[in-house]
Nucleic acid binder design. Structure first.
Length: 398
RNA sequence: GGGCGUGUGGCUGAGUAGCAAAGGCAUCAGACUGUAAAUCUGACGGGGUUUCCCCUUCGUAGGUGCAAGUCCUACCGCGCCCA
């Protein structure tokens, strides 16, 4: 039942892994054939998952495939405090309903990776909310203020005279107690969670006399080489459409290819080697893009996405599907047309686009740039308006 | 409870009473390409009879003044210090 292939285990413990505490222990345990219990905690925030988050989920799946018990912990209680590890220190408390709603969103996305019929879901409010003050004191007695304030971000805040809330010190205790309550052998998380996970290791030793292992995953950088983040808009979301996914990968920096091959795909070591042999980075990226699309969509959609991509951007042809805008008039001012066809959000924007040479009208094989924003367009059935590189609308005359 | 400070566009962050409001990031378009990235150029509140005009914005509400993001008052939010 439990897979113990040493080579497989070694790969799981290396690929996309930043650090393991303690690697030899964990390896030994995995090789022994004994089932272990591991968990990964998620914040019920309802955010869009991207392929950076996916690194951890794939790691969980690895363990799932080995046959171990995987627990997905919903941090509904800890979410009320706000993890000081993150930037968003102050979080609004979430209602029970919101947590449920958010988890539904999460599950929908994560089930592209995890098999939820085999994942055990737990909520940490089920034990954390029951702790008495005496229990909390006992928990707290295992740590010192010095241990807490040695964390870099606390140091920074201390020297900058920024506030540190007392409850922020409690966060690692709560997350640490999760390990005790579930009596786990391993926790998986991002590197930023190291401190909290170590607190869990300490407590698990004290309460259950077990050495909990910790595995942290590497951080996948965004397509521009910076941290993957919503503000930079440099991420590939798990739920992105195949064409978007493909396009985003193709437009990322070349020097990220290796990292993406390792972290964002499940290609074997040999396949990765082979991909890296392709001399043109463009081809490497195409392979990478196809692979990533395949992970979250059907394979045939990946193929289609690549064909479509080549069609539009390599051969500068028209896409096979475009939005349709129905018109009854014979004439249309170009700005109004763009606005109504949703090619621009305001007339100012439409005007700007025209002035910047971005607007083109295509009728059959004939292409014509619009240079004058006052232009009137004679509507013809089937004409296409192209804005920039990738915005198309087909006009249908009623 | 007392003292001080702060609130500006998607984010960040300048702003001496005459600004649709510097800079950076993000975004969009153009050039170059492999949709590369980087770089360069331009745009980046809305509308118009479009070398110019109008409207709406700087936490909220009032006030002073020809003129207010900029001064005054109150309120709200945030923060620091003292207690």
């Amino acid at each position: 039942m439990i897979e113990t292939n040493p080579q497989k285990i070694e790969e799981i413990l290396t690929r996309g892994v930043e650090e393991i505490i303690v690697k030899d222990d964990l390896k030994k345990r995995l090789l022994s054939g004994k089932k272990i219990k591991l968990y990964f905690g998620v914040d019920p925030t309802g955010a869009d998952l991207h392929i950076g988050h996916a690194v951890q989920l794939w790691k969980l799946r690895d363990f799932q495939e080995l046959g171990h018990d995987v627990i997905l912990l919903i941090g509904d209680f800890t979410a009320r405090i706000g993890d000081p590890s993150g930037k968003d220190a102050l979080r609004k408390p979430l209602s029970e309903k919101e947590v449920k709603e958010n988890f539904k969103t999460y599950k929908k996305q994560a089930s592209k990776i995890l098999n939820f019929s085999k994942v055990k879901i737990q909520y940490n409010s089920s034990w954390l909310s029951k702790l008495k003050f005496a229990d909390i004191l006992k928990l707290a007695s295992n740590f010192t203020v010095q241990q807490m304030i040695q964390r870099e971000m606390f140091q920074k805040r201390l020297s900058a005279n920024m506030p540190i809330s007392l409850q922020e010190f409690m966060y690692p205790l709560m997350q640490g107690y999760d390990s005790v309550a579930m009596d786990v052998d391993l926790e998986i998380g991002g590197n930023d969670q190291m401190f909290n996970m170590l607190a869990g290791r300490t407590l698990q030793k004290i309460y259950n006399n077990k050495d909990k292992s910790i595995l942290t995953t590497k951080l996948l950088l965004g397509s521009d080489g910076r941290k993957m983040s919503k503000t930079y808009n440099n991420f590939v979301a798990i739920e992105d459409a195949p064409n978007d996914m493909f396009g985003k990968i193709m437009s990322m920096s070349d020097n990220l290819i290796d990292e993406y091959l390792e972290l964002a795909t499940r290609l074997s070591v040999e396949e990765i080697k082979e991909t890296k042999k392709l001399s043109n980075p463009r081809d490497q990226k195409a392979r990478l893009a196809r692979e990533i699309v395949k992970m979250y969509h059907e394979e045939k959609e990946a193929v289609k996405a690549e064909e479509e991509f080549n069609k539009i951007f390599r051969n500068k042809e028209l896409p096979s599907d475009m939005p349709i805008f129905e018109v009854t008039e014979n004439n249309y001012a170009i700005l109004d047309l763009m606005l109504d066809a949703k090619l621009a959000v305001s007339k100012n924007e439409a005007k700007r686009l025209v002035e910047q040479n971005a607007v083109e009208i295509i009728i059959g094989d004939k292409k014509q740039k619009i240079i004058d924003w006052k232009a009137e367009v004679n509507i013809e059935d089937g004409m296409i308006i192209k804005v920039g590189n990738r915005r198309f609308v087909k006009i249908i005359k009623k």
